[in-house]
């Protein structure tokens, strides 16, 4: 049985290369029972999307302080 720690390692590696069938099966088993790791898996994809759309925040003042009316 995988630990949550190990699951996060595998899910992180899955962002780099396809996992073995065995690892994937073990992951599925674990995630059927673990909502934390299920959320973690989704968030790895989100983290990637988020990071790819990063733009530095220096001076985007037009969006600074929109006055609530």
């Amino acid at each position: 049985m995988l630990t949550c720690r190990r699951v996060t390692e595998l899910l992180s590696e899955a962002q780099e290369h396809p996992l073995s069938l065995r690892d994937r099966a073990a992951l599925r088993m674990h995630m059927m029972m673990c909502d934390g790791c299920r959320n973690f898996e989704r968030q790895m994809d989100m983290l990637r999307k988020i990071s790819r759309s990063y733009v530095p925040t220096a001076n985007s003042p037009s969006e600074e302080d929109p006055q609530p009316k």
């Binding site: 630990t3 949550c4 959320n39 968030q43």
Partner: peptide, 21 residues
């Protein structure tokens, strides 16, 4: 400190669903 000594999520660190990512 994110996991306990058995490799499970420490409860305050257990990932929750994100609102409107």
């Amino acid at each position: 400190s994110i996991f306990d000594d058995r490799g499970r999520w420490h409860e305050p660190n257990r990932p929750v669903r994100w609102a409107e990512p």
